[in-house]
Design a protein around this nucleic acid. Structure first.
Lengths: 189, 189
DNA sequence: GTGAGTGATGACAGAAGCTGTCGTCACTGA
DNA sequence: TCAGTGACGACAGCTTCTGTCATCACTCAC
């Protein structure tokens, strides 16, 4: 085994994604992932808590990004506009877009990975709610606003991903449009 | 082993819940659950796909209940009011309330169980969206309405559970109140 | 009744996920 | 140069989950 190659975590992530694409998530063993990264199975578990976690390394950074963006919104702004402003600001593309698309395809195809993605989303959701609470928003309002904000974010992101865009251009507009749609649904009696 | 005792599935569910409470989810083995139910580990997997699933037997019934209630709402009703009317109608207490509370406590304390619960919720969410589509609601509207409806349902249920109620009395009122709160958050500029 | 299904179960084997432990090696700093 | 530190390999072991086959209770023609 070639020790001390450096960049261990990323080597494991790349190896795992490639193997999941080639032969499927459940037909890929942790030993195979480790082998492709020139490591042993035991070392995989030193970097990731379990087999699924290898695809969710960027979750923590994304959460931090959002919370930071919320803190930058002018005080006194209502809860939902605060979240939407934060979403519009935060660049959520750390990894190349191509990587994100490959990753999304693998996750969508495997229930265990979908489960893990959902709880990551809930974790982010709780962080957003907490950030709103720190700004003085009432608890139930913060939670409702988070639900609404994430619903808008999802719709905007889906529309956004469906087209071919350069950098973050037009994403704030997509957010506004989605927010308008949501308002229409909420107010239809 | 005492074979043919009948009610196998329920015996396993009861044994699992009791053991999870007594010694924790991860310190409980499937073999222990099976033993308490007078079965072997192998038989456990004939009734449940995996260890987590033993706590989520009622999910399918709940989904069916909701979809049926949606179909019973007068045609022409807008999407969100349709969902809220369905929620108000459907009695979601199949099991005794005490069982649901014990189950909820165990799930909340164990991340793997939370993951499973989330994907069950997503499954129900997709069923609701699909039921709305069948009524002629536009796709994006159906999805947004489902997000909104589930957000309202969660808030109403939490408030509802916090108090001591008899049967379903007052639940429709809790739904209306939560819906009003959501509307306030959505329209605050 | 009696023998042929049918379905639930037990028994066994085994792959894969995950953890504990210890020794080894590369790197660092006094 | 030598002790400390951190990443890693090697090994053992438990648990989850699956495949396979024999066995037992029950049912239903005949």
């Amino acid at each position: 085994m070639a020790r001390w190659e450096g960049n261990t975590r990323n080597r494991l992530e790349q190896a795992a994604l490639a193997l999941f694409e080639e032969q499927g998530y459940d037909r890929t063993t942790v030993a195979q992932i480790a082998q492709r990264a020139n490591l042993t199975e035991r070392s995989f578990y030193r970097w990731f808590a379990d087999k699924r976690e290898v695809l969710f390394g960027g979750s923590q950074e994304l959460e931090t990004e959002f919370v930071t963006a919320i803190d930058a919104v002018p005080p006194g702004t209502p809860a939902l506009p605060t979240l939407l402003a934060a979403f519009a600001t935060a660049p959520r593309v750390f990894r190349p877009r191509e990587f994100l698309l490959r990753r999304a395809a693998v996750i969508a195809a495997n229930p265990p990975l979908r489960e893990r993605e959902l709880i990551k989303l809930v974790t982010i959701s709780e962080a957003l709610t907490s950030a709103l609470l720190d700004r003085g928003v009432a608890p139930e309002t913060a939670r409702l606003a988070t639900d609404l904000g994430l619903s808008v974010l999802r719709l905007a992101t889906e529309r956004w991903m469906a087209e071919e865009h350069r950098d973050g251009k037009g994403f704030p507009e997509a957010l506004s449009a989605a927010a308008a749609n949501l308002l229409a649904v909420a107010t239809s009696t």
